[in-house]
């Protein structure tokens, strides 16, 4: 089965549409969404509906910190993020709010684990950015492969049979074999607001028969997404950073 993993859409309709279309072309059988559907972008309602429709059809979706922030304001959020969440609240229907607020924090799927931030202290939303934070997540679960998002930077951490940790910057469109001898922590880059200086949307496809994971960079209409952010009166930085991918 081919499973598309998408995370950190952040209300970016153009980016999500481009990724969904790309995934369909690549004959994906199933979708897993790793949280942060809203916040920052100008189309939170459309994105929530798109995810809801796929969850109704059997997709998995977990909770992100911005989704949780819709109903439970998070004091640690920076001003821009808090402003965007406040605006987002005014855009969502009760059904959409209800969908977001009842998502699970973690989903286990056989030997795989899906979580937004980290398998370690999931509800505190720690960032998996380096070997130390990755090792904490890898040690907090027995799952062979953990998929997460949250950092907006794609990365592939792994732990060998002898207990050595290492990280790897995945290369676009190169099939990565997830060997069974090793435990893996795949940080999927963001669909809606990449921060690794590559403005193209990022998502990944897992082939669970061949145990290979492939990261894809998908170009999308950034101009349209940015224009809508400005038109909505959201902080202009949220539009600018889409072009830089940072």
């Amino acid at each position: 089965m081919r499973i598309a993993l998408m995370t950190d859409v952040h209300g970016n309709r153009e980016a999500l549409s481009a990724c969904l279309e790309h995934a369909e072309r690549h004959r994906v059988d199933r979708y897993v969404f790793l949280g942060d559907y809203v916040g920052y972008g100008a189309d939170p309602g459309w994105v929530a509906d798109a995810v809801m429709a796929r969850v109704d059809a059997g997709a998995v979706a977990v909770l992100g910190n911005h989704d949780a922030g819709v109903t439970n304001p998070d004091e640690r959020m920076n001003d821009v993020a808090a402003e965007a969440i406040a605006w987002t609240r005014t855009q969502l229907s009760p059904a959409q709010v209800d969908f977001l607020s009842t998502l699970p924090l973690v989903v286990e799927d056989g030997s795989r684990l899906y979580v937004h931030a980290s398998a370690y202290a999931s509800a505190a939303w720690p960032y998996v950015t380096d070997l130390y934070s990755a090792s904490k997540s890898l040690m907090a679960t027995t799952a062979q492969v953990t998929f997460c998002g949250h950092t907006h930077v794609p990365n592939l951490f792994h732990m060998s049979m002898t207990g050595k940790f290492a990280g790897f910057e995945p290369v676009d469109r190169v099939e990565m074999p997830l060997t069974r001898q090793r435990r893996w922590l795949a940080v999927i880059g963001a669909v809606g607001q990449p921060r690794d200086r590559n403005p193209a949307a990022c998502y990944a496809v897992l082939d669970d028969e061949r145990d290979v994971l492939t990261y894809f960079r998908v170009p999308y209409d950034i101009e349209a997404a940015a224009r809508k952010i400005r038109a909505a009166g959201l902080p202009p930085i949220l539009a600018q950073r889409l072009f830089q991918g940072f």
Binding site: S160, M161, T162, E175, P177, T179, Q181, R182
Partner: peptide
């Protein structure tokens, strides 16, 4: 020796491609 263990894993990974 870890070279034996990891070498076998690396070989599987690379030869398949």
């Amino acid at each position: 020796d870890p070279i034996t263990i990891i070498g076998f894993e690396a070989e599987q990974m690379i030869m398949a491609r």
